[in-house]
Design a protein around this nucleic acid. Structure first.
Length: 362
DNA sequence: AATACGTGGCC
DNA sequence: TGGCCAAGTAT
């Protein structure tokens, strides 16, 4: 026990030393030098970045984080924002329940908590969209709480450091226990980011750079040459193919027919083209009577758990048209960047079609 | 516990 | 080209 504690302390110290020399400069990060001067990160920005980073790469998040913080510098600003505006700014980042919960959480913090985030992991955990990882990360980084932060990086680093050969997800509890044994009481925020940085830059999934790893001398998987094979994972279930039909109706004044998707489920709360259900043999479901024509080609898109192939039908309709579903948005009201990626692909396919009405010019 | 939930980069 | 994977959460 005592030996483990001493070894864990030394491992944490090595990681902190490495982090002091190699910490990446990220927009949401207060680096080790500034932290040593007593500069504390803004909990709102820590929270925003951590939610954006859930299952999402740093490269993808960077631009979104810059735009969100420019538009909404405080949690009060975000809480007061229009839902559609926030969903539109999140478009393309994926996992849209995050954006819906982001607004819910901002409104609880701004409305019920005086604009201040809770300063413990336990209390943070009760907020919408904040789970075990995010609660621990905010508590450690923003509030100096010695919480154990466990994300995919930490699981990978622990699996290798301790040569855990049990496949994920069964290994989760053992990996968490190893991570907890290493977590220091000092500089918990820097430590959490150090392990994640190590996982993101050196202890990478495919070909870990063991040659320059500060933990190389203590890594059990490296010693036996199996680092790259860890962590093992249970076999994944294959993705089925689903099909669907979407309809792009353009009014003569240029307005396009779009609908707000239901608040739950796939792409919940996002703007999209009306269409059929997605399944084996989708039924024709035009949102209004029109002379629909099939566009050549199709839109292919892969979600987490299925492949989608969408047929696209288009029509030009009179200005007096009314639709059974959705609403016509004028060119001034419609920003293609408000669409989730699969719907953006539909727009791109439609826009690139030559048309007898000269649509390509507008 | 298992499944639903996005997207883009990498090899 | 297609599968893998990423700073997970909700149910």
């Amino acid at each position: 026990m005592r030996d483990d504690a001493v070894t864990g302390h030394e491992t944490a110290h090595i990681l902190l030393g490495w982090y002091d020399r190699h910490a990446r400069d990220l927009p949401w990060r207060v680096g080790p030098a500034d932290r040593a001067r007593g500069i504390r990160p803004d909990p709102y920005r820590v929270w925003l970045s951590e939610v954006m980073l859930q299952q999402t790469t740093v490269a993808a998040v960077r631009g979104y984080y810059e735009r969100f913080t420019a538009l909404w510098p405080t949690v009060g600003d975000l809480a007061a924002a229009d839902d559609a505006r926030v969903m539109g700014e999140w478009a393309g980042l994926g996992y849209y329940a995050r954006a819906r919960n982001l607004l819910k959480c901002a409104r609880v913090v701004a409305g019920d908590l005086g604009g201040r985030f809770p300063d413990t992991a336990e209390a943070l955990r009760d907020l919408p969209g904040i789970g075990p990882y995010t609660a621990a990360a905010i508590a450690a980084i923003a509030f100096d709480r010695p919480e154990t932060v466990v994300d995919g990086n930490v699981e990978r680093v622990m699996a290798r450091l301790f040569a855990v050969e049990t496949p994920l997800p069964a290994a989760k509890s053992a990996l968490r226990a190893h991570a907890a044994g290493l977590t220091p009481k000092v500089r918990p925020g820097d430590y959490a980011q150090a392990v994640m940085d190590l996982g993101a830059t050196i202890c990478t999934p495919k070909s870990p750079a063991c040659g320059i790893c500060p933990l190389r001398p203590r890594c059990a998987a490296r010693a036996t040459g199996i680092a790259a094979a860890l962590p093992r994972r249970s076999p994944k279930t294959p993705k089925p193919v689903r099909r669907g039909v979407v309809y792009v109706a353009r009014r003569m004044d240029g307005a396009l027919l779009l609908e707000r998707r239901p608040d739950s489920g796939l792409l919940g709360g996002m703007l999209g083209w009306p269409g059929s259900d997605w399944g084996d043999n989708p039924a024709d479901a035009p949102p209004l009577e029109a002379d629909w024509r099939d566009l050549p080609g199709e839109v292919r898109h892969t979600f987490t758990h299925f492949h989608l192939r969408l047929a696209v039908r288009a029509a030009e309709v009179p200005e007096t048209s009314t639709a059974r579903r959705g609403a016509f948005l004028s060119a001034a009201e419609f920003r293609p960047s408000d669409l989730p990626t699969v719907m953006r692909k539909v727009f791109d396919l439609w826009r690139d079609q030559p048309s007898p009405w000269g649509r390509a010019e507008t």
